[in-house]
Computed example of a mutant assay.
Amino acid sequence: MRQLSFFSADALPPAIPDLGGLLACAGQVVRQDIGARISVLVAAEWRAHAIAELISAAGLVAEVTVTTEGNLSVRTALVAELLPLGSQWQRGAVKSVPVGWVPGPRALRAWALAAGSPENGGERFVLGMDPHAPDTYPALTAALSRAGITPTPIGVRGPNPGLRIAGPRRLAKLVDYLGAPPVAAPAADCWPSG
């Protein structure tokens, strides 16, 4: 049994700034005068429900829907509390990583829930990035490095860009940050084991 770390996402409840982890991947923010909404498309039902739980734990209302294209979407309500986060992650209408952003354990967990996947039987783990926001890739690489997990960018010119985390130390640190896999997750093929 793994001991709970003081730095694990399991150690504290999520907060609104942690939803930046959804924006690090393909999540989107929509801002209006009265508030902002964050949404993200995910590939599996367990991911949608785990993200909805994370949003609810941060004190916001979450909605899981199926889009007209058949994709699962998780989104927050349109609320004023998300305006600061939305402003930090946008430069005009373009997604932009906040200057100096360091993803904490709960933001990393949100990122992994939305777009994380193991490779090579768990020897590596990839955090997906937004294929429509290539200008964010260098900043996300630097942000993860500032968090103490130096990644390797992969697929930056293709449809599935990501940051690969490899090596026993880096994986162990990532596992420590992310905490336990969600209960409904098929753990063997979705969460790093470090």
Rank of each mutant, 00 (worst) to 15 (best):
P98D: 01
W89P: 13
A147D: 05
E53T: 13
A139R: 06
A93N: 12
S145L: 08
F125H: 08
V79R: 14
H49P: 00
V99Y: 15
I55Q: 02
I51P: 05
I55H: 04
Q88I: 04
T67G: 03
E81R: 13
A44C: 10
H49I: 00
P118L: 05
L108P: 04
Q90D: 06
V126Y: 13
D130G: 04
G70Q: 12
W111K: 13
L140P: 01
E123F: 00
P138C: 00
V66P: 08
G59N: 12
P138N: 01
A147T: 06
E63H: 09
L127Q: 13
A58C: 08
G104M: 07
G100V: 03
E45G: 13
G86M: 06
G70I: 13
T68G: 12
A62V: 02
T67P: 07
N120A: 02
L108A: 09
S73M: 15
L113S: 10
E63T: 11
E69T: 14
D130Q: 10
L60H: 10
F125P: 05
G128K: 10
Y137D: 03
R146K: 09
A50P: 07
G100S: 02
L78A: 14
G92K: 00
H132V: 03
A110G: 12
K95W: 04
A57D: 15
L78T: 08
L83Q: 15
A114M: 01
L140R: 09
A114K: 05
A139P: 01
A52F: 13
G100E: 07
A143K: 10
A62H: 12
R146I: 13
P103A: 02
G122T: 03
G122H: 04
P118Q: 01
H132L: 13
P118V: 02
G70R: 09
R124S: 07
R124A: 11
S145G: 11
S56G: 08
V126A: 09
V99T: 09
T136A: 05
D135Q: 15
A115S: 13
Q90C: 12
G70T: 06
T141V: 06
L140F: 08
S145A: 15
L85D: 13
P103Y: 06
N120F: 00
Y137N: 03
N71W: 14
M129P: 00
A93R: 12
R91A: 15
A48N: 05
Q90R: 15
F125G: 14
E53M: 09
T68Y: 01
L78M: 15
L72D: 05
A57H: 12
P134W: 02
Y137Q: 02
A80I: 03
T76E: 06
I55R: 06
E63L: 14
A139W: 01
S87Q: 11
V74I: 12
T68A: 14
L113Y: 00
I51M: 02
V64Q: 03
R47G: 10
L78G: 01
T141G: 05
M129D: 00
L127W: 12
T141I: 02
P103C: 02
V102A: 03
I55S: 01
E119C: 11
F125E: 11
R47V: 02
T67D: 03
L83Y: 07
W46C: 01
R109K: 09
A115R: 10
V74T: 04
R124Q: 09
V126F: 05
P105D: 01
A50W: 06
N71L: 14
A114G: 06
A43L: 05
L85C: 11
A133I: 10
A110Y: 07
A139H: 10
S87D: 15
P134G: 00
P138G: 04
H49S: 09
H132T: 11
V99D: 15
